[in-house]
């Protein structure tokens, strides 16, 4: 089970709950699992959040692999100057 932590931007969907264990092989699986539990969160996370998988930031990347013991941290998408 991947350990998924939601940044505070997602908390309105979860009543503040931030940590979940999710069965997922890819980022898309994580999005689907979150949406199943909290309708609307999937689309929100897909559009607004980046997925840091074991410390490496993945942005707009449905097929990025999530390992069985991965840490997945949702943070706002990053831009730059």
């Amino acid at each position: 089970m991947a350990r998924v932590t939601l940044g505070s931007e997602c908390w309105p969907f979860t009543n503040g709950q931030s940590d979940f264990d999710i069965e997922a092989a890819t980022v898309r699986d994580v999005i689907a699992a979150l949406d199943a539990r909290f309708p609307g969160l999937g689309a929100f996370a897909d559009k607004r959040m980046a997925f840091a998988i074991d410390g490496v930031i993945h942005q707009d990347a449905w097929f990025s692999a999530v390992g069985p013991d991965s840490e997945v941290y949702l943070i706002p998408k990053i831009g730059g100057g």
Partner: peptide, 14 residues
């Protein structure tokens, strides 16, 4: 912070 530290913004540095 060093490799393995959980960053203040969330993920673990590598």
């Amino acid at each position: 912070v060093r490799n393995g530290t959980k960053a203040a913004y969330g993920p673990t540095f590598q």
